[in-house]
């Protein structure tokens, strides 16, 4: 299935490439050139833009000037949004993992005896991919709205004060991020759990490990590749997302993320250097977190 591509490189058993030939160059060149032109060059022009300064204060015209101050200025100015982005992304990743692991375990391990059920449940997991991401989020906005059923029920149960809201609050943003990235978490988990050999679990219980102990010492380590690619596939887009946090969707004035700031600086205020500097900061932090994380979890070969 197409979507299993998300589960990343773990699938392919790479055969030793055998030939050196001019054909390789012909095959590679167009695609690589394309990536250089439309991925590498934009990153470079982003870096250049991030170092520009205004020709005259308030002119709105920028020119190159190795203006490193853009970085310190925007980091200081937008520190809350930067920290918030990573906090929300981490929370969403943790919640998505907690939500998805049991589900993926059931589909991948327990449902093996019924292949039809397995395929059916898998299709339901990826079903959200096939309906507009924005419409799904708007649907949640309506369901979680102040007049909606969820807030009403919570108020009736006194779990939410009479003035309480969900939408516009950080909780709604984290909820939306979690919901939207659950399939990205579920699929890689499913692909590793589906190949989990239950005989290891049997051997573990035979060696005096209780159910919990078996889960912690055998199931989790054996499904680590899925956990790592699932968390990356959730964390990276969640940290840069700005749809969930924008005020027309689930966010409010106090829940803006770095993505919202980049978007408004670039598209609304036309403050290109600030937007570019923040983009570079976002990318740098993500790359650092990802490489530390991948190294720590001992799954280097995943990249």
């Amino acid at each position: 299935m197409a979507i299993t591509a998300f589960s990343g490189s773990a699938v392919a058993v790479e055969a030793a490439p055998r030939r050196r030939s001019r054909i390789a160059l012909v095959l590679l060149l167009p695609g690589i050139l394309y990536l250089v032109l439309f991925f590498v060059v934009p990153l470079v022009s982003l870096i250049i833009t991030s170092l520009e300064s205004q020709t005259a204060p308030g002119s709105g015209v920028y020119q190159y000037g190795f203006n490193v101050q853009n970085y310190s200025d925007s980091i200081v100015q937008y520190l809350p949004q930067i920290l918030r982005s990573f906090l929300y992304a981490i929370l969403a990743t943790v919640f998505a993992l907690l939500f998805s692991y049991p589900l993926a375990y059931f589909i991948g391990v327990k449902a093996r005896r019924w292949p039809l059920l397995q395929s059916f449940m898998l299709i339901l997991v990826i079903a959200p991919f096939f309906i507009s991401f924005l419409l799904r989020t708007l649907a949640w906005k309506t369901i979680l709205a102040d007049e909606g059923p969820v807030v009403g029920t919570l108020k009736a149960l006194s779990l939410l004060g009479p003035q309480g809201h969900i939408t516009g609050e950080p909780i709604a943003v984290v909820f939306g991020l979690t919901y939207n990235f659950i399939p990205f978490m579920c699929l890689p988990l499913y692909t590793t759990l589906e190949r989990l050999d239950v005989r290891y679990l049997e051997a573990s219980t035979d060696l005096y490990a209780s159910g919990w102990s078996t889960f912690r010492r055998v199931t989790i380590p054996l499904s680590l590749p899925g956990i790592v690619s699932g968390t990356l596939l959730t964390f990276i887009p969640a940290a840069g997302d700005y749809v969930n946090a924008s005020q027309e969707f689930l966010g409010g004035s106090s829940s803006a993320m770095i993505g919202n700031v980049i978007q408004s600086n670039f598209l609304v205020q036309s403050n290109y250097p600030a937007a570019a500097a923040l983009s570079i900061v976002l990318m740098a932090i993500i790359l650092i977190i990802v490489s530390v994380y991948v190294r720590r979890s001992g799954t280097d070969d995943l990249l």
């Binding site: 991925f39 060059v41 982003l46 940290a239 980049i262 978007q263």
Partner: peptide, 25 residues
């Protein structure tokens, strides 16, 4: 391989802003 992997590990805002900056300049 890195060149193939990186676009998938880059947040969409960064790609979007980068391309927009390039088209702009």
């Amino acid at each position: 391989s890195l060149l193939i992997f990186l676009p998938m590990a880059t947040p969409e805002v960064v790609i979007g802003a980068g391309l927009a900056a390039q088209f702009l300049s």
